[in-house]
């Protein structure tokens, strides 16, 4: 029997022992955070879906090797980060502004098609969401990655530094620059 309030570390241990429900709980708990991390880094939903599948396949396969000396989220986002880096490196020539523009347009369409939101709320949400996406896209890759790791993974500076294999000071600097730039770009919203 799997406890919905159980820690991530306990759940991955349960899954390693053969409890499929524990994995599902973990997946649902972290699904959106991992996906947003991937999608906002690669700027492409289809690619994010592919990476999402690879990341969670790796989690499922390597669950027995997870060592609880680190938080589960650190392990999870390390896998996600590595996948994302691989993807960006191998796909860079294929990415185009057209692709990114299509993605932004897709968000606009989804937001405006949401029947549950009132017109004003939808317009505001749309405005903010587009502004946020644009601002994140404008960050340099290293800063974007560090910021998304911290904000989606709820990771410490040390953990982000370890995942990206950079020094503590460099990571802290990247995070500061990222937040500073986002603050500038989003000052009319934040």
């Amino acid at each position: 029997m799997t406890d919905a309030g159980a820690s991530d570390e306990w759940l991955i241990g349960r899954y390693a022992g053969g409890d499929a429900a524990a994995f599902e709980l973990l997946y649902r708990r972290h699904e959106m955070r991992v996906w947003r991390y991937l999608e906002r880094n690669v700027g492409n939903r289809a690619t994010a879906d592919e990476l999402m599948q690879e990341v969670w396949f790796a989690v499922a396969r390597d669950a027995t090797r997870y060592e609880p000396s680190a938080r589960f989220t650190t392990w999870l986002f390390t896998i996600a980060h590595n996948r994302m880096i691989d993807s960006i490196r191998s796909r860079r020539p294929q990415l185009s502004l057209e692709t990114l523009g299509y993605e932004a347009q897709s968000v606009v369409e989804q937001l405006t098609a949401d029947p549950g939101a009132g017109p004003l709320a939808a317009a505001e949400a749309l405005d903010q969401e587009v502004a946020l996406r644009q601002a994140i896209k404008e960050l340099p890759g290293d800063q974007r990655d560090a910021f998304l790791l911290q904000v989606e993974g709820d990771l410490s500076v040390e953990e982000v530094a370890a995942i990206t294999d950079t020094s503590f000071e460099t990571t802290k600097s990247r995070l500061r620059y990222a937040r500073s730039k986002l603050r500038d770009l989003l000052k009319e919203y934040a």
């Binding site: 499929a20 997946y27 959106m32 939903r45 599948q53 969670w56 396949f57 937001l111």
Partner: peptide, 22 residues
Amino acid sequence: LDPGRPSESVRQVVLKHAAQLA
């Protein structure tokens, strides 16, 4: 508020695979 979601097919494939491994 972002309506973006991973596709349902990804979720199904991942969970099915994980269940088989389990």
